[in-house]
Design a protein around this nucleic acid. Sequence first.
DNA 1: CTGAAAGCGCTTACAG
DNA 2: CTGAAAGCGCTTACAG
Lengths: 337, 337
Amino acid sequence: MKNNVTMRDIAEKIGVSSVTVSKALNDKEGVSDELKEKIKQLAEKMGYRFNTAARSMKDGLSFNIGVIIPERFTGLAQSFYLNFYQSISRVLEEQGYYGILHILRAEDEDGLKLPRIYLEQKVDGFIILGQIKKPYIKKLQTVELPAVFMDFYDDESHMDAVITDNFYGAYDITNYLIRNGHEKIAYVGNIYSTSSIQDRFLGYYKSLLEHHIKLNEKYILNDRDNHGKYIELELPEELPTAFVCNCDQVAHILIAKLKEMGYSVPDDFSVVGFDNDIYATITEPGLTTVEVNIEEMSRTAVVFIHEKIRDKDKKHGRVQIKGNIIYRDSVKNIKKD
Amino acid sequence: MKNNVTMRDIAEKIGVSSVTVSKALNDKEGVSDELKEKIKQLAEKMGYRFNTAARSMKDGLSFNIGVIIPERFTGLAQSFYLNFYQSISRVLEEQGYYGILHILRAEDEDGLKLPRIYLEQKVDGFIILGQIKKPYIKKLQTVELPAVFMDFYDDESHMDAVITDNFYGAYDITNYLIRNGHEKIAYVGNIYSTSSIQDRFLGYYKSLLEHHIKLNEKYILNDRDNHGKYIELELPEELPTAFVCNCDQVAHILIAKLKEMGYSVPDDFSVVGFDNDIYATITEPGLTTVEVNIEEMSRTAVVFIHEKIRDKDKKHGRVQIKGNIIYRDSVKNIKKD
DNA sequence: CTGAAAGCGCTTACAG
DNA sequence: CTGAAAGCGCTTACAG
């Protein structure tokens, strides 16, 4: 690649040293304004492009952030985290960083194999998008690079985490159902599966408690096995009037099942979701759901990782970003006035 | 970052030069097998991580590929290209590369602004995913980096392109409808919008021609304006028995509309799509559609860009990757036997 | 305000 | 089989 314009080329053309060119292009002190301007213009004219690799060598920073998504959260039907990645990648670019996506294979996660982006010093830090297994979290902690968890947390490890406010989101939307006259409300989700599903369940439970509605164990419906694979939903004998689903996709599946059984939503049952992802709009009727504020979460995570790169000891702890309820057509007011 | 282990550290510990360490770790000639093994083990033990930046400086290669997606093909409801990117990113990683995603903003596309990944020498080449405007194509050609188009092509510019076999895909699936007794078949798509939609239309047309079915202009239904925004579908007065949709998403929209009008699919109308994306499985009934072979296309594009990086003058032209028909439940056999 | 020197960590000839 | 030297393109003290 000898045909690339370097600072030295510019320097020679103008009769100064490359140090001066460096200072000028980086807007540093110690170059007269005229010269600065002259250098900048010549650089532009010569088609100068900054060589990131050289800078990286000097300060040991790549200005790349590795965004790690466990394989099981990807696939044709699961675009949520990819959208998340897109948002992160956008925010990173605004901040002068780049996001390198790494899909963490199940075997690497189990085998505690660190991604090559780490082994090749390709990145300055990690954003981990989606719950990873405990041993892998431990493994990541042995690594000196900063990491921020997104959309999940792990209490033992005290890693910084940016999560959606699962608890209050579920609490709010359950309150909304109750305000609409519902009392027999089921929760759909494997409450032993992920922290998100658990916290959403607890928010739902809090709402019940506050309204002195007794928690009915038969109204906790399992939606997936412990590997995250969806299983056939089993409805209780005595049916509720409303369902709080732990995510929009499960709400979509539930509604399909109810329709198959000859029921109508929201006329026979009200259903709410969580996430506001593609399933919320694609479902007929549109889902009333809790929006995950992807943009705000991305912004926060990027600020965190940036600060941690500059200061290794910086801690942020667990930060919850509140989402709003998006009202669509899957809830019916059954209050008898 | 002084606390990183370098080749020199390993060399000193073992009493050889860093050249020998470099040779050993890269499995080059000129080091005895014993020494090689010893060096590798020590490297492992000392937690040595290769410094990509240093290698980049030497040979001017970043081992990053910029994957550019125009903004208008992204968003919550459009995960197709993100899935594509994921597949590309996976294949790149297998080949020792990394894919850096760049969402091309509309204003940058119109303003002919090159992405920063180019200006900062972050990437060795581009994969452009999704049709970009002509002037931007021209702009890209002024750049010395190799580029491969994916899922679209541009005839004037003779840029290498990996596309799905739109023509024969649509031809095959239209043939399939005809074999099922359909003769009044509409095509849904703005045939002036993208080359894909146009080619799929022509495949549909070829099938009609071969079966001596006259093309009815009223059976060409526009689905989007020239900015790609979906518009309300207008059905012809005399309805067809089947619809060939230019993509699954439009098939989804069409089926929703037909259902609203009180019709049933496939009982009243057969509908087929193209892409086999999330809309194909989410639609009720599941869509019979032409699968885009994302994996194979990614593989091909990565091979192309890799070859072009090594040999600037390498040309591949336009390569079509054939997809298969995925049979689901949106087509009814109406042949009277 | 300007620049010579040194160094970031590796690799590529080349010499022994 | 092994290594000294030079260089990739930049930046950071430091000297003037």
